[in-house]
Design a protein around this nucleic acid. Sequence first.
DNA 1: GGTTGCTCAACCTGCCTTGTAATCAAGGC
Length: 586
Amino acid sequence: MVRSNEEVAALLAEYADLISITGGEAYKARVYEKAARAIGGHHADVATLDVKGLQEIPGVGKSIAEKVTEYFRNGSVSAVEELRAKIPAGVRRLTAIPTLGPKKAHTLYEELGISSVDELVEAVHAEKLRDLKGFGPRTEEKILHGVELLQSAGGRVLLDVAMDLAEDLVAQLSGATGCRRCTYAGSLRRVRETIGDIDVLVAARKSAPLMRAFTELPYVSEVVAQGTAKTSVRTTKGLAVDLRVVSPDAWGAALQYFTGSKAHNIRTRELAVRQGLKLSEYGLFDAESGKKIVSETEEEVYARLGLPWIPPTLREDRGEIEAGLRDELPGLIQESDLRGDLHTHTDLTDGLAPLEEMVAAAAERGYAYYAVTDHGPNLYMQQMTDERMLAQREQVRKLDGAYGKHGRRGGMRLLHGAELNIDPDGDVDWPQDFLAGFDLCVASVHSHFNQTREQLTRRIVRACENPFVNIIGHPTARIIGKRPGIDVDLDEVFAACARTGTALEVNAHADRLDLRDEDILRARRHGVKFAVDSDAHSVLHLANVRYGVGTAQRGWLNKNDVINTWTEARLRRFLRKEGTDRGTRS
DNA sequence: GGTTGCTCAACCTGCCTTGTAATCAAGGC
């Protein structure tokens, strides 16, 4: 995301919160929330736009456009400052506590002057809340509990953690009495990079046995709410899980509804309304007669709205409705399209498994080719030398062809490569004559993350211009929840990649997912190619490519965009950087 | 406050589920 867009999005979101806390018009708050999302996801830098240009962003009208330009002119927005003066920042933070919304936060501030989480905890212990209207002993307990959760878990978990739990839940509930169908929905089904809570959906005639089976699972530590339609629990690891039981004939409508996203659902709902229909989790109905039209499958629901079935990874209101109406949805890349993995490690450097084991596991996955790319010598802790790298190459050449592809002839081909370190100047580990011996090179940033934007941009562009660098590994170097991405002019990097025939990685490791979906969308417009790689450091990691494929789908990639879906011959041509202005090797 | 259909007004997805005490707030997609 462009940094200035991020700033403006945060400012507008804050304004929306302040409006709801001060009891302003609900619609007004919603409009600012919507504009914040639209600007956050906008492809161009909003700092470069004037009022007219800003108004072309959907959801941004004259008033918001003027506030944005005011922000870039003065560094602040007077309307926001006025509300900030009324409501201390800490009050807004109170609403992050589960079960405590804007109304209660406002009451706490107005009546007791509470403006921070610490003050709130103190007030609860002093039993000051009891005199307030709407606050009872249970509310006090819930607030303390909510604060604890807020401070321990921090909310969202990584995709792989959520997926492991969800798949187990689905397996368990599928075996329960009366379960007709069971799957996970929500942001997990859309393969978002982090998951706030897991939504599990079951089709059954009677809900009670399912709810019971659910709450009795061994890793359920707390039942937050239990009803006939919905039960919410928290697991021993602090994850929130909702189970919803729906009637089997409403399965499609419910799945569509609970998969979201909210923004996507708003759009589908609008489509329904315009056609005199009403869409809810119970089905698609005639608005006048109330007669149910369809609800059993997602395909039927979408079809009746005039849409093809939309893959969950696209359901973010990023143009998928419009594309669907024109019947121009992309043919998304699938995991089965991957013919190989181009970024993996062995125990020669920081991997856990020896070469033979990694290669055997790759062959097991049915790959047509597989690249071994251990770290070069510039990451000092890896203790790499020319001799060790060349010895590995010899070993790779010997194994090449020894592993069959599903037992068929013409076995999996092995590529010998390296993951080079892009140093602060944009140079990499070895001189060109040594690099020429590799089949491919991934180059990545591993240190000096705090250089200036100009330095970082130049650094990566120089790496792209190296005729032996084929893939930029985890391009922003972010670690989700731990380290933000480097401050780099991605548009300049994308242009350099397109110009030099350098692919960008979609690193599939769940704590990286780098590039991220939004940036993939932008890069694609520059004509960049991608490599969806596991960056596996162990046999188990090879399977992480599923998250990379999900992320690539969220970036609207088809298989032609991804070099490791190509045939070996086409891939090798790309690796030689032929036909680009860096096609000087070989 | 923005958008839509049509010049100013109507509409905004819209309803469900749950818990708690307050006759409503919070949270969900």
